[in-house]
């Protein structure tokens, strides 16, 4: 394995996005100084309150939106527009309602490999439809499917183009808890099989812990940033039914919830201090257990490389 810290797969540098204010001159900066790296095969979740610009960051990574400042590099090349290298799963599933399940997936496959023969496209699409458990429903229209099944088609479509990276914007946000659980399990399985690199936005702390290798926490906007990064070292394969018995589970969960409830607001004041850290604070589960026992939070020393690769 090459040393991942020298060759991050995705590198985001000083990303910022400002919108012109509705009243006139002063632009509103939603987020700025956003820096992070994602390594190949890593599953990264981002969470934070509404309005911190998570979706905008995802859209910039997808090439659908552009940043006001900063750069995104993937595989050493700058991201300047949408690309088949980055598959997107939209919250609203974004299936084309006039096409059947198979046609929706085939549309993506044909976009990826335009020279492929019809039957090859079909077989390839069917493989991914089977992967998400929709065999038998391939000729149905999206309107005939439940919300969970639609999102599965979205997943099949995104995986079918075999992207180098998968971007997911709250993919399960609109689903009921039971369906969400089932699809999370499937996603976990597929990602394990394909070693997919994933960047996912979620509001669900448990979802983040179940799926991710790394959880990025964003402070509240305006001027939002990635305030903290938590390395999620819970061993894989993970089981929904057993994960909460892991010793590190509750420390991580409490840390995340505490951040969302209180620290995300305070960060805004902190960041204007002259000695404010320019890179996010990184937590390992071991730190968090200490913090549980000892009320004094042990922050890692400033200047420590802000990416930890733990059993990647």
């Amino acid at each position: 394995m090459t040393n991942p810290s020298t060759h991050p797969f995705l590198q985001v540098e000083n990303l910022a996005r400002a919108y012109p204010s509705p009243t006139g001159h002063d632009a509103v900066t939603v987020f700025d100084h956003v820096n992070f790296r994602i390594h190949k095969g890593e599953f990264v979740c981002v969470t934070g309150h509404s309005g911190c610009g998570k979706s905008t960051i995802l859209n910039i990574l997808a090439g659908l939106d552009s940043a006001s400042a900063g750069n995104v590099f993937m595989d050493g090349r700058e991201v300047s527009g949408p690309s088949l290298d980055r598959g997107v799963i939209f919250q609203s599933h974004a299936l084309m309602p006039w096409l059947s399940v198979l046609e929706n997936v085939s549309f993506a496959v044909k976009s990826r490999w335009p020279s492929w023969h019809k039957s090859k496209i079909r077989d390839h699409a069917m493989r991914y439809i089977e992967l998400v458990g929709l065999k038998g429903a391939e000729h149905k229209k999206p309107s005939q499917l439940s919300g969970g099944m639609k999102q599965r088609v979205g997943i099949a479509r995104a995986f079918s183009i075999e992207p180098k990276m998968l971007l997911m914007d709250e993919p399960f946000g609109a689903l009921d808890a039971l369906t969400r659980g089932v699809i999370q399990d499937e996603l976990l399985k597929i990602c394990a099989e394909t070693q997919q690199t994933v960047f996912m936005i979620t509001h669900d702390v448990d979802e983040a812990i179940l799926l991710s290798d790394k959880i990025m926490l964003m402070s509240n906007g305006p001027h939002a940033r990635i305030a903290e990064i938590v390395n999620n070292t819970l061993p894989r394969p993970r089981e929904r039914s057993a994960i909460h018995k892991q010793p590190h589970y509750y420390p991580i969960r409490n840390h995340l919830v505490d951040f969302l409830v209180s620290r995300s607001k305070q960060f805004g004041a902190l960041r204007d201090a002259p000695d404010a850290p320019s890179s996010p604070t990184v937590f390992d589960p071991e730190d968090l257990i200490e913090a549980e026992i000892d009320p004094v939070v042990h922050l890692p020393p400033v200047g420590k490389p802000h990416i930890h690769l733990v059993n990647a």
């Binding site: 090439g63 659908l64 690309s83 088949l84 939209f90 609203s92 974004a94 976009s111 990826r112």
Partner: peptide, 26 residues
């Protein structure tokens, strides 16, 4: 719907195919 256009952008669908396969049916 912007979603459908975004899908075709991320799939790098060429303009002619986008016009006939996405915009026209939509």
């Amino acid at each position: 719907r912007k979603d459908w256009l975004d899908v075709s952008r991320t799939l790098e669908v060429n303009p002619l195919r986008k016009a006939f396969r996405v915009i026209l049916p939509a």
